[in-house]
């Protein structure tokens, strides 16, 4: 089960990502626990598997429009499907990797896997509860979902 301080690590990591990479802060809403079913996803979802001291997944899910603007802010002019997949995985990787500052190096992160489509189902970790961190950036909404045992 995720502790409040651990959740704060991911909230701060998300805020930091948008401040630095997108040069524009995101507003992060109050995290909430998913009590029923699994959180819905947007068009692109970058999934990081966690192993070591903790077990579970962290995923960042965002609509194509948000990723397009993020790429623009990075001076990227290739808005292909492949680059969208690449970026959503990189955001998930960066936020998860940054969490090792607090979790330590036995918080082992995988390379990203990417799901596309709003009907895709992220992996479910038995025995882990999912916390959703809502992210609002410019006019777009995304989510970071943390599901750790």
């Amino acid at each position: 089960m995720l502790q409040e301080q651990e959740l704060k690590t991911f909230v701060e990591g998300t805020t930091h990502y948008f401040e630095v990479a997108a040069q524009q802060p995101a507003t992060v809403g109050s995290p909430y626990l998913v009590t029923e079913g699994i959180p819905t996803v947007h068009e692109y979802t970058g999934v990081i598997s966690i192993s070591g001291r903790r077990e579970g997944i962290v995923y960042f899910t965002a609509p194509k429009a948000m990723l397009t603007v993020l790429l623009m802010k990075m001076q990227e002019n290739d808005f292909s499907h492949e680059n969208m997949r690449d970026l959503v995985g990189e955001v998930a990787n960066t936020i998860s990797g940054n969490a090792r500052r607090d979790f330590g190096n036995d918080f082992v992160i995988s390379v990203p896997s990417v799901l596309t489509g709003e009907r895709s189902d992220p992996p479910v970790i038995p025995g882990a509860r999912s916390f959703v961190i809502p992210i609002n950036w410019r006019s777009h909404s995304a989510k970071l979902v943390v599901s750790l045992k």
Binding site: N93, T94, I95, S96, G97, N98, A99, R100, R101, F103, G104, N105, F107, I109
Partner: peptide
């Protein structure tokens, strides 16, 4: 250039 932010790494 890495996302891994722990000192040990």
């Amino acid at each position: 250039i890495s996302a891994l932010a722990d000192k040990a790494t």
